[in-house]
Amino acid sequence: MLLATVTPLASILGSGLLIIVPVLERTLGGLSVLGAVAVCAVAWVVGTAIRHCIRVVEPLENSGDLDRTTARLGRLGDAVIVVAYVISVALYLRIMAEYVTGFVGSGGTGVEKVIACSAVALIIGIGVTRGFAGLDLLDRVSLGAVLILTMVLGATLLVHDGGQLLGDGLSLPPVPDLGIGQIMLVLGGIVITVQGFETVRYLGDEYDAQTRIRASRLAQGTATVLYIAFVVVATPVMGLGTSAGPDETLLDITDRVAPFLALPLVLSAVLSQFSAAIADTAAADGNFRSLSSWMTGARPYLLSGTAAILLAATVPTFTIVAVASRAFAAYYAIQALIALRTSRGAGPRIGYGVLMALMIAITLLAETAG
């Protein structure tokens, strides 16, 4: 089960660990942890719908007993998630490139695009020549390094916070003057930060249903603890309300608190984004193969890689964030509807109906921060 957890956990951490703190800082300030809890809670509910589909819907599909309408919804969802994965791969590698150029202090958008496109080409090359086994091995190495570097950074912030607490006391940033409606729209717009748990849905050729369900739970639980803990220790050192001003990236925080961690943070950024891109590439490959019998051999990798390179080379990063968040929300809405149609009892049906409505709202109305 631990090996099956690598892909979803890598995708989740790569999706949001680098951007969730600056986004919540600008949205909730000193109450950022509430935003982290809310986003993770919604993600867990969506994960419940995904796991229902693995447990209930997949056997019906395999036996041919799934009704035609639900089957068509499933095909629609598969098509939507392929688009979302391709967009997310381009996004992760653009973020990775931004951290690299930001650290060295040179380059610009053109260099970022070259780095991102080269990384996509590398991942696709490994997928074509080594398949899932090659990607999974690379993913495990990257994820292990990311977890170590994240713990080091988190521990450093914790020690800093402890020193402040024992000294003059902790000073939390102010809460921005935003309406509840705007806050909800921004939180909805960062669905991408918790995306990744659904990758197990498309790893059926490698792992059985129970293994994938447990892996999804473990990945979400681990990511939830890391996200909330990281936001807690980062909140007291946010620049909002100080002369430093609100932080654009985590590099701003490390430059103030622990400059010696700038390089480890950039390494973590590179590895986490690369790892997440690998995870979503593997999931997109499995999804492509389930959509069409024509999608065999290297074709899924080449198709998704070409599309990701075009996006990374032509579309601004914040635009990719907006489109990716909406695409994943649309997919989650479809999965909630499928879960509603295949559930028994009023309670689950009402719950999945509310979830579907929320995801539709995010698809239509979500705002991006930045």
Rank of each mutant, 00 (worst) to 15 (best):
L340R: 15
Y92P: 00
L364P: 09
I190R: 02
A209C: 01
M356W: 11
L203M: 14
A369M: 11
R72F: 06
C117E: 05
A38E: 04
L185M: 13
A361M: 11
L93D: 00
D161T: 03
I81G: 00
L355S: 06
L13C: 03
A145T: 14
L66A: 00
T70A: 01
G305Y: 07
P316K: 08
L66Y: 03
V257E: 08
T242Y: 11
Y332I: 00
P316H: 09
S171P: 00
L2M: 13
G196M: 03
V233R: 11
T222R: 06
V120M: 11
T129F: 11
V191L: 12
A308P: 04
V83G: 00
A322N: 14
A97I: 08
Y227T: 14
E58G: 04
D205K: 12
S11V: 05
A262G: 10
I12C: 10
S118I: 02
R68L: 08
A155F: 14
V80F: 04
L291Y: 07
G169T: 01
S268T: 01
V152A: 13
W44Q: 11
T150F: 06
A41K: 06
D252L: 03
M356P: 05
T156Q: 03
L218S: 13
R68S: 12
T296M: 07
A361Y: 14
I115P: 01
T70R: 03
G179R: 10
L166G: 11
R26T: 12
I148K: 02
T48S: 12
F197L: 10
F328Y: 14
A346W: 14
G16I: 05
I115R: 04
I360L: 15
A133H: 07
R68F: 06
D252W: 01
Y227R: 06
G345N: 13
L24F: 14
I148R: 01
Y99I: 06
A38G: 10
R201A: 15
L17W: 09
G134I: 00
R212I: 04
R349M: 15
L143M: 09
D168R: 10
Y85P: 02
A4Y: 04
V194N: 05
S304G: 03
Y92T: 01
S293Q: 13
T363H: 03
L178V: 01
T296R: 15
Q220D: 04
A90D: 00
G345D: 11
V200P: 05
A36Q: 06
G131T: 04
E198V: 00
L365E: 12
Q195M: 09
A90T: 00
A244W: 14
